[in-house]
Amino acid sequence: MARINISSKHLQINKASTMITTTLAIASFVTAASLVGAKTMFEQRSYQSKVITEKELAVKTLKENIDAVNTLVTSYKEFIGRPVNIIDGSTTGTGDRDGDNAKIILDALPSKYDFPAITTSLEKVLSQDNFIIKDITGVDDEIAQNAKETETPEVVEIPFSFSIGGEYGALNDLIKKLETSIRPFQILKIEFNVSDSAELNIDAKTFYQSEKKLNITTKVVK
């Protein structure tokens, strides 16, 4: 049987080569693990830095909003506390032109669509001068209008028509009354029919301004 003779020097070389390979493998693993760990720590630090920045910005915005609210409250109290309102009525009175300034503005430009309220207001005005109300027409679009949401308030037209009978002079005074009404009415068309008594047909429109929507949002920091 043949015998293989391996020199001591050759064995030492093989052993050294194995140790070097093992050492390099361990070093490579440690280096890779260190790089992965360093990358993870860097990403976490970057993320935490972004979170801190966003929190500081939110706190700053909140403080500014609180200051703005305090200023707004002070201005609002002064605005509604005046003894005479912006149309020279009494703040504490109960007449058609009385009430604080906030009430006057809401009467002039309501924040909600309400067609029945328009017809009620017209009936009140017309009844005061003993007009014969023949017809008040329009489209009650309340459901569609109230379903709208917008961050920017917009003025929306509300068209309507009405037909009344009465004395000619009183009809002329009615047009002036509509023009000086707290709530703005824009007359689009006027028709006079005169026989035994005068009849007036008017196409007009008024307005409302939708409410401003305040949306509280959250932000995901990436």
Rank of each mutant, 00 (worst) to 15 (best):
68 A>S: 10
156 V>A: 03
61 T>G: 02
141 D>S: 11
95 G>K: 02
211 E>D: 06
77 K>A: 12
114 D>F: 05
127 S>T: 13
149 E>C: 03
13 I>T: 15
199 E>G: 03
76 Y>E: 08
126 L>E: 02
93 G>H: 07
203 D>W: 00
4 I>K: 13
113 Y>F: 12
4 I>C: 08
23 T>Q: 12
72 L>P: 00
188 L>W: 01
42 F>G: 05
123 E>R: 10
23 T>Y: 09
7 S>A: 14
49 S>A: 09
42 F>E: 07
83 P>T: 05
151 E>M: 13
112 K>R: 14
31 T>K: 11
75 S>M: 10
173 D>P: 02
117 A>M: 10
201 N>E: 04
186 Q>V: 09
50 K>L: 15
75 S>P: 00
3 R>M: 13
111 S>K: 10
115 F>V: 10
171 L>D: 03
53 T>Y: 10
94 T>P: 01
71 T>A: 15
128 Q>A: 15
27 A>K: 07
31 T>R: 07
178 L>G: 05
173 D>W: 03
192 F>D: 03
24 L>M: 14
205 K>E: 05
50 K>Q: 13
200 L>Q: 00
31 T>F: 10
50 K>S: 13
114 D>K: 08
215 N>F: 01
205 K>C: 02
179 E>D: 15
145 Q>T: 06
157 E>D: 11
69 V>W: 04
163 S>H: 05
141 D>Y: 06
20 I>Y: 12
175 I>E: 07
35 L>I: 08
131 F>W: 06
166 G>Q: 02
213 K>G: 04
122 L>E: 01
46 S>N: 08
49 S>F: 08
78 E>F: 08
93 G>Y: 07
52 I>T: 14
79 F>G: 01
17 S>W: 11
152 T>W: 12
57 L>V: 10
159 P>E: 10
176 K>D: 13
21 T>D: 11
129 D>I: 06
155 V>T: 14
185 F>K: 02
43 E>W: 10
188 L>I: 08
48 Q>W: 04
122 L>D: 02
17 S>I: 14
209 Q>E: 14
123 E>S: 09
99 G>V: 02
209 Q>G: 04
180 T>F: 09
160 F>M: 06
129 D>G: 03
181 S>I: 02
40 T>R: 03
106 L>A: 02
194 V>W: 02
75 S>Y: 07
142 E>N: 11
103 K>M: 13
126 L>W: 03
121 S>P: 00
61 T>P: 02
